[in-house]
C-alpha cells in the first residue's frame, strides 16, 4: 500500500465523497417527501391519485436505478428536457426511493388503529391536522426501521451515479484504477469512504429508532 499516493489523492476522494453525500442526501430527502405524499394519498383514498401512486410505486421499485438514470439522462433530452448530471442523479434517486419510502410510510400509517383517527376527528381536527398530529407521529415510530433501511440502501445506490458521468466516489476510484492501476489503494479508499459516510448514518438511525421507541409509547 502506497501511503504517499493515498495522501496525494485524499482531496480528490474528499471532493467525491462530498458529491456522494450531497446528491445522496438531496435524493433521499426528496424520496422521503414523495413517499410521505404518496402514503397520504393512499391513506385519504384520493380517487385518481391513489391509482397513480400504486402504478408509480410498482414502476419505481421494479426497474433498476441504472435504467432510470439512463432514461432521465439520455432519454429525456430526446423530448427536449435537458438535465445536468447532478440533477439527474438526484431525481433518479428520488424516483427510486420514493417508491420504497411510500411503502415504508404506508405500512406505518396502516398500523395506526383507525379509531385513533376517529378520535382525533371527533375532537374537531381536520383530516390534515389529524394526519399530521395524530397519525404521522405514531406511524413514524413504526416506520422508522424500514425508513432507515431505505436511507442506507439509497445512499449506497448513489454508486451507480458514475454511469451518468457524476464524479462520485465510484467514478473517482474507477478513474484512478484505469489511469494509474492503483487498484489496491483505490479500493481501500473507496470502501473507507463509504464506511465513513454510512456508519454514522447507521448509528444515527439506531439512536433515533431507540428514541422513538422510548418516547413514552410503544412499550
Amino acid at each position: 500500500m502506497d501511503w504517499a499516493y493515498i495522501e496525494s489523492v485524499l482531496p480528490l476522494y474528499g471532493k467525491a465523497a462530498w458529491l456522494t453525500l450531497r446528491t445522496g442526501t438531496a435524493g433521499i430527502l426528496l424520496a422521503a417527501l414523495t413517499g410521505l405524499l404518496c402514503a397520504a394519498a393512499i391513506h385519504w383514498r384520493i380517487p385518481v391519485l391513489r391509482k397513480i401512486t400504486a402504478a408509480y410505486v410498482e414502476l419505481s421499485r421494479n426497474t433498476p436505478l441504472l435504467v432510470q438514470l439512463f432514461f432521465i439522462y439520455y432519454g429525456l433530452p430526446k423530448i427536449g428536457i435537458k438535465t445536468d448530471p447532478e440533477a439527474c442523479g438526484i431525481i433518479g434517486l428520488a424516483f427510486l426511493g420514493g417508491g420504497y419510502m411510500t411503502e415504508a410510510f404506508r405500512s406505518g400509517v396502516e398500523a395506526v388503529d383507525r379509531i385513533q383517527e376517529e378520535s382525533a376527528l371527533s375532537l374537531g381536527l381536520t383530516r390534515f391536522q389529524t394526519f399530521l398530529h395524530v397519525i404521522l407521529p405514531q406511524a413514524a415510530a413504526i416506520s422508522a426501521p424500514a425508513f432507515m433501511a431505505n436511507v442506507i440502501f439509497l445512499m449506497k445506490e448513489t454508486s451507480v451515479f458514475s454511469a451518468v458521468s457524476l464524479m462520485d466516489l465510484m467514478f473517482t476510484a474507477k478513474d484512478q484504477i484505469g489511469l494509474y492501476y492503483r487498484t489496491t489503494e483505490s479500493l481501500f479508499l473507496l470502501v473507507g469512504a463509504y464506511l465513513l459516510i454510512l456508519l454514522p448514518l447507521s448509528l444515527l438511525g439506531t439512536f433515533w429508532e431507540r428514541r422513538l421507541r422510548h418516547a413514552g409509547f410503544g412499550t
Binding site: Q116, E118, S119, Q138, G216, F217
Partner: peptide
C-alpha cells in the same frame, strides 16, 4: 365524544 377504549394519543 368519549370512546370505550379511551383512544388517548399514545405519543
Amino acid at each position: 365524544m368519549v370512546f370505550q377504549n379511551y383512544e388517548l394519543f399514545p405519543h
